[in-house]
Amino acid sequence: MSIQLNSIVGRVSYQCDVLFRIIDVKEVNGKKTAVLYGEDYRLIADADFDDLVEIDPYEQSKISREFRSLEEQSFELFQQDIDLTRNRNEYTSTNGYRNDFNYFQVPGRVLHLDGDPAYLQKCMALYEKIGVPVYGVHCSETEMHHRVGALIEKYRPDILVITGHDAYSKAKGKKSDINAYRHSKYFAKTVREARKKVPHLDQLVIFAGACQSHFESLIYEGANFASSPLRVNIHALDPVYIVGKISFTPFMERINVLDVIRNTLTGEKGLGGIETKGVLRTGMPYKPLTEE
């Protein structure tokens, strides 16, 4: 098998612990170097071709099945949590089931900016599956801070997701130095620009970050939730589970951070945040749209 653009590969020096796809090839000091995107993790990396091995379709399928199983488990836990929330909302809205009100619910609208078009499509499919209204925009991580203001004005979201790929490089500095990260400084700039448009933490809930991102800077700039406290990799779909919990929690209720991250695939090592209100609103009576 010949390694080329879009090949699925592993890094020999890391015991092929993460599957990557090659998204770009370039020459560095006369050496052929590949730019890699994680297949299931929001991780970006550079690697010499000499350090890469192509993963055969059987092994890809095996690893993929393991990840899909984890995703299904996480989705089932998330769905149980959302069903409990909906049942509680129904109980409250109907005065303990004593009144037969014909009510409706308006979950929070999401604007999702993603540096990876393939991951964005995966996320959009999951948003649709759980019933979250969303606008998805593919945008390079380095350009997000230039575009976010206009996008907020256009879509007026309740929740903003700023994600893509990231990585920490020990060779570039200490973990405390945001310049040692591939895209963290751009995520931080994007959060800052978003907060210029909507300063209040409960009027626009923000999730920001990707694998190994500089968690502290993202929270400091105004994100409600971010990655990655222990600089670990986060799963591609983790932002959706966080957003789903926020979107379906009533705006009069506060969300415990642990409650938000417990059903994600990464957990508290890769995700964290601050106490935040939900954004779901209930109304009545329900009137379906009809043609006159």
Results as ranks from 00 to 15, higher is better:
residue 57 P to K: 05
residue 250 P to A: 10
residue 31 K to L: 13
residue 245 K to D: 09
residue 82 I to Y: 01
residue 72 E to G: 04
residue 114 D to I: 07
residue 32 K to G: 11
residue 17 D to W: 07
residue 229 P to A: 02
residue 252 M to G: 09
residue 286 Y to V: 11
residue 32 K to F: 08
residue 216 E to I: 04
residue 8 I to L: 05
residue 191 V to I: 04
residue 69 S to M: 10
residue 127 Y to H: 09
residue 3 I to D: 03
residue 33 T to F: 05
residue 175 K to L: 12
residue 188 A to L: 04
residue 197 K to M: 12
residue 15 Q to E: 10
residue 93 S to R: 08
residue 242 I to K: 02
residue 3 I to Q: 00
residue 240 V to F: 05
residue 158 D to A: 08
residue 156 R to H: 15
residue 23 I to P: 02
residue 224 N to W: 03
residue 253 E to R: 01
residue 16 C to I: 11
residue 223 A to E: 04
residue 23 I to T: 11
residue 245 K to L: 11
residue 197 K to V: 08
residue 76 E to R: 06
residue 45 A to M: 02
residue 97 Y to W: 08
residue 286 Y to P: 11
residue 91 Y to F: 14
residue 51 D to G: 02
residue 120 L to D: 05
residue 67 F to V: 15
residue 236 A to G: 07
residue 65 R to N: 14
residue 120 L to Y: 01
residue 131 G to A: 05
residue 200 H to F: 06
residue 245 K to S: 10
residue 230 L to Y: 10
residue 132 V to C: 07
residue 292 E to R: 10
residue 53 V to L: 00
residue 32 K to S: 15
residue 120 L to T: 08
residue 171 A to R: 03
residue 109 R to C: 14
residue 94 T to E: 06
residue 143 E to N: 12
residue 260 V to R: 01
residue 11 R to F: 13
residue 179 N to Q: 12
residue 34 A to Q: 00
residue 262 R to F: 06
residue 169 S to F: 12
residue 220 Y to E: 14
residue 187 F to W: 02
residue 88 R to D: 15
residue 283 G to R: 05
residue 23 I to Y: 06
residue 25 V to E: 07
residue 32 K to M: 10
residue 148 V to L: 03
residue 73 Q to S: 09
residue 287 K to G: 10
residue 181 Y to S: 09
residue 51 D to P: 06
residue 117 P to W: 03
residue 12 V to I: 13
residue 255 I to C: 11
residue 99 N to F: 13
residue 213 S to L: 01
residue 18 V to A: 13
residue 228 S to M: 07
residue 259 D to E: 14
residue 124 M to N: 12
